[in-house]
Design a protein around this nucleic acid. Structure first.
Lengths: 123, 123
DNA sequence: CAACTGTATATATATGATATACACACTATA
DNA sequence: TATAGTGTGTATATCATATATATACAGTTG
């Protein structure tokens, strides 16, 4: 688990954690049944409060991506890679839509947008 | 001035206002020296507090897009269309970068991203 | 003065993050 | 086998910040 917290990010810490854990599960680095780091361990490592890591895990559990047992720990739930991928596709679409709306404000054509996308993708 | 407030939006009201006013200036619907609606008028029209419209105008003034005179009103500053366009380009870039990061998480190729972009652009 | 303009103060609500004290589960060892 | 120790997650009370507000104040103009 190599989670990185950015304090300059506009996104809340707990959301940065859930996003990165979802990505790790999606990549197959963690499989169904695998243990996640304990909320205390993760909190110490990231130098944040236990309550913040707990909140991240709560959201992951609420959405069915992990299961957590008091006194034991938290574990990856089964059969969610497809769900995660679909969610990620929707998120990607959302960003593209925002880019398109923003592009329309300054009269960028589809071709110009495509060009920007290609350039940025290489970096 | 045809400003629309969405209560379901995650963006704060004052930001929705600044964004839309910037778009209006960029499109040339308002030119340097033109008067903006008074914060009171706009507040009544949008059924929100004067303080919220004031905050929006404060930000626009801080960034040099409008000038406001107590007792008189607020007016479009001069020579900002280029600045606004550059800002908008940066914002568009930001959204594209987010889309790319999100796409990488679920292993989408550049071609697949381009395809999504094209489809979404037509809608 | 009247009717318009923007301004300042004090306040309510929601969200993100925290410290600290609590309760449950395993396990080593007396 | 009992139990202390160290691991796990949980609950309460609290703080800081951001968004939005009502209401009272002050300047400008005809």
């Amino acid at each position: 688990m190599n989670i990185i917290i950015s304090n300059t990010s506009e996104k809340p810490i707990y959301e940065q954690i859930t996003t990165q854990i979802k990505a790790i599960i999606m990549k197959g680095e963690l499989n169904a049944g695998d243990a996640l780091p304990s909320i205390r361990f993760l909190a110490k490592e990231l130098r944040i409060s236990v309550i913040t890591t707990k909140r991240a895990y709560e959201e992951l559990e609420r959405d069915g991506f992990i299961e957590t047992v008091p006194g034991k720990g938290s574990f990856v739930a089964s059969g969610n890679q497809e769900l995660l991928r679909e969610e990620q596709l929707r998120i990607t679409e959302g960003h593209l839509i925002q880019a398109i709306e923003s592009a329309r404000s300054c009269s960028l054509s589809l071709a110009q947008l495509q060009e920007m996308l290609a350039v940025l993708y290489e970096e």
